[in-house]
Nucleic acid binder design. Structure first.
Lengths: 342, 342
DNA sequence: TCTGGCACTCTCTGGCACTGAGTGCCAGTC
DNA sequence: GACTGGCACTCAGTGCCAGAGAGTGCCAGA
C-alpha cells in the first residue's frame, strides 16, 4: 500500500497543474517526473486519490485536476516554503526602504507583493487599535470648532472636527493647557486605552473647559474606534485577467468582491489572527470553498500579520504556486514590520 | 442632399449600438426608429457615413459600428446631456452628504459614480497646490526631530518628520513661537505660495532658531510640492469585466493601465483643465484613440473638474452612453464641490 | 432623390467524421 | 499482493460542409 507514492503523485499533479494550467494525465506525468513506475500504476493511484476527493476529472477522458482538499493536503504536508533568493531579498529590502511615508510604504508593499507573486496583493493599513499614541494635536479652525488630530506611532493620522460649544480662537492658553494634559495622559498608550486614560483628564480640567474637554475626548475615542472601518489597499488586480488564468465567468464577481473592502479586511484580519496563534511568522492559507465569502470561493488567499499592527497577503486562483506565494508573503511581512516598527 | 437625415442615421446607430452592443443594420434600424424612409435609403446614407469614416463594418455582411470619429461627432453635435431625474439628484445629495471625512467623501463619490454609470469611476484627491493652508502644526517627536503637519482647507493632511539639528523637547516656547510665525504668514495662502511666504519668516526668526526654521520651511515646501505625486482613487473596475462588455483580450492591459495612477492623474488632470477653459461646468470627453496613453485607446474617458481643486470622471469602453455619463459626472462633480468647499 | 428588387457576400450554426489524450479494466508477471 | 502491458472505450477538439439568415451594393424605375 504505497501511500507515500500516492502522495508523491498528488504533489506531481499539483505542481504540473500549477505550471501548465491543464489537466494532467498519467502519461504526461511520467514524462515530467521520475516516479519509477508505469503509467498504469499511476492511473491506479489517481483513481484512489479521486475516490479520496483530492483530485477530480473535468470529464471522462481528460486528465486530473486538484480539488480544494487536494491543495489543502499539498499545502499542509507536501510543500515546504521555498526561501527567496538572496537577490530577491535585497531587492525587497531596497524597494521598501525607499518609501518616504506611510502611504508610500503601503503602496510599495502591495505593488511589490503583486509583482513577486503575480497575484492580487492585499494590505491592511496599520491598525490603530493596536498601535500607540505618538501625539495629539488640537487646532482651532474658526468659530467654536476645533480640529483634533491623532497621530499614531505608525505614522498614521486621524482627524476629527468637533464643535466644542465655545469660541476658542482667542484663548490659545486654554487650548495649550488641554493639549498638554491630553498628551501627558495618552502618549505612548494603546489607542484602545484612550477613553480610560482621558477619564482622569476630564476630572482635572477647569470647570469652564469641561464641555470642551468632553467633546475632544469623544472625538479621540471616535478616531481610535474608527479602526473597525479600516482601510485596505490592493494592487495587481490585472493579474486576475491575465490570459491563462482561470476565471471563465466569475471574473467580474471576483473584482466586485475585491471592492468590498470590509469583507477583505475581515478575511485578512481573521486569517492572520489565526496564523498568529501558531508560530510567530506563520502564514495562513485559505483555499477555495474554505473561504467564508461566496464570490471568493474560486480563489485562494495567503495571508499573515506584519508585526502586531496589521495583515497582508495575496489573493489568486486556487491554482496558485503556494510555496512561492507563502515565501513572498512571509518575507515581505517581515521587512514591512521592520520598517514600520524598527 | 439630406445631410440632416444622415446625421439622424448616425445618431440612431450610436444609440442602438450602445444599447445592444451588436452591429446595427439598415433593417433593424428602421424597426427601432421612425426615419420615414426605406431601408435602401438608409443603406445609401450608411455608405456615405462609412466613406466619411464615421462608421465601419466589422465584415462585409454585418451591420455598422460607430468609429471613434463617429462617437466624437455624436458627442459634439448630436447629443444633449440628459439631466438626471429629481430622484437621482436627491439620492446623490443624500449619499454624499453622509460622508464623515475626506477619505469618505472620495470613497463615496467614486462608488456612487461607478454605480450611476456602470463604468469605472476615477477621482483625483483634492489637490494641494490649488488649495490653501488651514493650519500648520509642529510637534517634537523625541530627540532633535520635529513632525511638521500641514492641514489644507480641503481637510487633507500632509506630514513630514525632519531633523532640525537641535533638541527641542524642553523648549516648548521656541516651538510655539515658530508655529505662530509660520501660521501667521501662511494660513489662508495657496499651498504653492508657501515658499514665498515663509521667506520673510526666516528673516525674522532669532538667529539661534534659523537652522530649525529652515528645516521646517523645507519640509513644508516639500509637503506642498508632494502634489505631483497626487493620489487617485478608483471604483467599479468590475464593470470592465461585465459580460456583454467589449474587451476581448485587452482587459488585462486596461486593468494594468488603471494601476498606473500617475497616468490616470495626467489624463484626468489634463482633460479637466481643458474643459475648464470653456464654460464653468464643461465636461471633457476623450474617445478611444484620442487618448494619449496607448493601453487605454480602447476606452473613453469622461471627466471634469470639481470646484477648483481636482478632477473626476469615468472610464469605460468607447461604446458608452455618453449623454448619461456626462450628466452623471457633471452632477456628481457639482455636489462634491459643494461639500468640499461649501 | 427615393424606393423596391435582386444578386451577392459573409458569418453563424449544426451535423459529421476523425484524431488524440486519457481512462478503466483485465490478465499476466515478479 | 503489487506492478505492468495491452486493449477497448470515452469524449473534447478540429476540420469540413451545407444551409440559413442578415446585411450589403447596385440598378432601374417612380
Amino acid at each position: 500500500m504505497s501511500d507515500d507514492r500516492r502522495l508523491e503523485v498528488l504533489r506531481a499533479i499539483v505542481q504540473d497543474y500549477v505550471k501548465t494550467s491543464e489537466p494532467v494525465g498519467s502519461k504526461a506525468l511520467l514524462e515530467r517526473h521520475r516516479l519509477g513506475v508505469s503509467a498504469a500504476t499511476v492511473r491506479n493511484d489517481m483513481a484512489v486519490l479521486e475516490e479520496e476527493g483530492l483530485i477530480t476529472a473535468p470529464h471522462t477522458s481528460a486528465g486530473r485536476v486538484p480539488t480544494d482538499a487536494g491543495y489543502r493536503l499539498f499545502v499542509d504536508r507536501l510543500s515546504t516554503v521555498k526561501p527567496l533568493s538572496r537577490a530577491e531579498r535585497t531587492a525587497i529590502e531596497q524597494f521598501l526602504g525607499g518609501a518616504v511615508d506611510l502611504d508610500d510604504v503601503v503602496s510599495r508593499t502591495t505593488r511589490l507583493l503583486s509583482s513577486l507573486t503575480q497575484q492580487v496583493a492585499v494590505m491592511q493599513y496599520p491598525s490603530l487599535s493596536r498601535s500607540t499614541v505618538r501625539h495629539v494635536e488640537l487646532v482651532p479652525v474658526g468659530g467654536t470648532r476645533l480640529m483634533v488630530v491623532l497621530i499614531a506611532n505608525t505614522g498614521r493620522v486621524e482627524q476629527r472636527v468637533v464643535d466644542v460649544g465655545r469660541d476658542l480662537s482667542g484663548d490659545e492658553l486654554a487650548v495649550a493647557d488641554l493639549r498638554s494634559r491630553i498628551n501627558g495622559a495618552a502618549v505612548g498608550q494603546l489607542l484602545s486605552m484612550i477613553p480610560a486614560r482621558l477619564a482622569s483628564v476630564l476630572d482635572a480640567v477647569p470647570v469652564d473647559d469641561r464641555r470642551v474637554a468632553e467633546s475632544v475626548a469623544a472625538a479621540l475615542a471616535d478616531a481610535a474606534a474608527a479602526d473597525t472601518e479600516e482601510r485596505v489597499v490592493l494592487a495587481g488586480t490585472a493579474n486576475l485577467a491575465r490570459v491563462g488564468t482561470d476565471f471563465p465567468t466569475s471574473l467580474s464577481s471576483v473584482l466586485d468582491a475585491l471592492e468590498e473592502h470590509v469583507v477583505l479586511l475581515r478575511l485578512i484580519g481573521g486569517m492572520s489572527t489565526l496564523a498568529s496563534g501558531e508560530a510567530g511568522d506563520a502564514v495562513a492559507v485559505s483555499i477555495g470553498h474554505e473561504n467564508p465569502y461566496e464570490p471568493l470561493q474560486t480563489t485562494s488567499v495567503v495571508a499573515t500579520r506584519y508585526g502586531v499592527v496589521g495583515g497582508l497577503g495575496v489573493l489568486g486562483p486556487t491554482r496558485m504556486d503556494y510555496p512561492q506565494a507563502m515565501a513572498a508573503v512571509r518575507a515581505v511581512a517581515h521587512y514591512v514590520a521592520e520598517i514600520l516598527e524598527g
